[in-house]
Amino acid sequence: DETGKELVLVLYDYQEKSPREVTIKKGDILTLLNSTNKDWWKIEVNDRQGFVPAAYLKKLD
């Protein structure tokens, strides 16, 4: 059920640097789980959840 889920576009590649982070690729469109922290957003990638720098993402309307 995708209702109410926010999507984000990945602006730059990011390689995870800790187990709490996930790797993302430029151009991916992913589900945003939590954006309350202005610097690190929690997203879902391939059934994995983790954090990436918010500056690497853009919210889609």
Rank of each mutant, 00 (worst) to 15 (best):
D1H: 13
D1E: 11
D1W: 12
E2W: 12
E2C: 14
E2V: 13
E2G: 14
E2Q: 13
E2I: 14
T3R: 10
T3V: 13
T3S: 12
T3H: 14
G4P: 14
K5S: 10
K5D: 08
E6K: 12
E6Y: 13
E6N: 12
E6D: 11
L7K: 14
L7W: 15
L7F: 15
L7S: 07
L7E: 07
L7Q: 10
L7N: 05
L7Y: 15
L7V: 08
L7H: 12
V8G: 02
L9P: 00
L9N: 02
L9H: 04
L9R: 07
L9C: 07
V10D: 00
V10G: 03
V10W: 01
L11I: 08
L11Y: 02
L11H: 02
L11D: 01
L11V: 06
L11T: 04
Y12M: 13
Y12P: 00
D13E: 05
D13K: 03
D13T: 06
D13C: 05
D13M: 03
D13S: 11
Y14N: 00
Y14K: 01
Y14W: 09
Q15C: 10
Q15E: 14
Q15T: 14
Q15L: 12
Q15S: 10
E16I: 10
E16M: 12
E16F: 08
E16A: 15
K17V: 08
K17W: 04
K17R: 14
S18C: 09
S18F: 06
S18G: 11
S18D: 11
P19T: 09
P19H: 10
P19V: 09
P19D: 12
P19M: 09
P19N: 10
P19G: 08
P19L: 09
P19E: 11
R20I: 11
R20F: 13
R20K: 10
R20M: 12
R20E: 10
R20D: 11
R20T: 11
E21R: 04
E21G: 11
E21D: 04
E21Q: 11
V22P: 02
V22L: 11
V22Y: 03
V22M: 08
T23A: 04
T23V: 03
T23S: 15
I24S: 01
I24T: 03
I24G: 01
I24Q: 00
I24L: 05
I24N: 00
I24V: 15
I24H: 01
K25V: 10
K25C: 10
K25G: 05
K25M: 09
K26P: 03
K26A: 13
K26F: 05
G27K: 02
G27Y: 05
G27W: 06
G27P: 01
G27T: 02
G27H: 05
D28C: 10
D28M: 15
D28T: 13
D28Y: 08
I29S: 02
I29Q: 04
I29Y: 05
L30K: 02
L30A: 15
L30W: 15
L30H: 15
L30T: 04
T31E: 09
T31R: 15
L32D: 00
L33Y: 04
L33P: 00
L33R: 04
L33H: 05
L33M: 07
L33C: 06
L33Q: 03
N34V: 08
N34S: 13
N34D: 15
N34F: 07
N34M: 08
N34Y: 06
N34C: 11
N34K: 07
N34L: 09
N34H: 06
S35T: 08
S35E: 10
S35P: 06
S35M: 08
S35Q: 09
S35G: 10
T36S: 14
T36C: 12
T36V: 10
T36Y: 09
T36E: 14
T36H: 13
T36D: 15
N37E: 10
N37A: 09
N37K: 06
N37P: 04
N37Y: 08
N37D: 14
K38I: 10
K38G: 09
K38T: 10
D39F: 15
D39N: 13
D39M: 15
D39K: 15
D39R: 15
W40E: 04
W40V: 03
W40Q: 03
W40D: 01
W40F: 06
W40H: 03
W40I: 03
W40N: 02
W40L: 04
W41V: 02
W41Y: 04
W41M: 02
W41K: 00
K42Y: 15
K42I: 12
K42S: 06
K42N: 05
K42Q: 13
I43D: 00
I43G: 00
I43N: 00
I43M: 01
E44R: 11
E44F: 07
E44K: 12
E44V: 11
E44G: 06
V45D: 08
V45H: 13
V45Q: 08
V45Y: 13
V45C: 11
N46K: 12
N46G: 15
N46S: 12
N46H: 13
N46A: 14
N46C: 12
D47G: 15
D47S: 12
D47T: 10
D47A: 09
D47R: 10
R48L: 06
R48D: 04
R48K: 10
R48F: 06
R48I: 07
R48G: 05
R48W: 08
Q49P: 05
Q49D: 06
Q49S: 11
G50W: 05
G50M: 07
G50H: 06
F51D: 04
F51I: 07
F51K: 02
V52E: 00
V52Q: 00
V52G: 02
V52H: 01
V52D: 01
P53M: 03
P53R: 04
P53W: 04
P53I: 02
P53K: 03
P53V: 02
A54N: 03
A54T: 05
A54S: 13
A54Q: 05
A54D: 01
A55G: 10
A55D: 07
A55P: 08
A55R: 15
A55W: 11
A55M: 12
Y56E: 01
Y56L: 08
Y56Q: 03
Y56W: 06
L57G: 00
L57S: 00
L57E: 00
L57R: 00
L57I: 06
L57P: 00
L57T: 02
K58H: 09
K58V: 12
K58W: 09
K58Y: 10
K58T: 09
K59R: 15
K59C: 06
K59S: 05
L60M: 08
L60C: 09
L60A: 04
L60H: 05
L60F: 08
L60G: 03
L60P: 03
D61A: 13
D61T: 14
D61N: 15
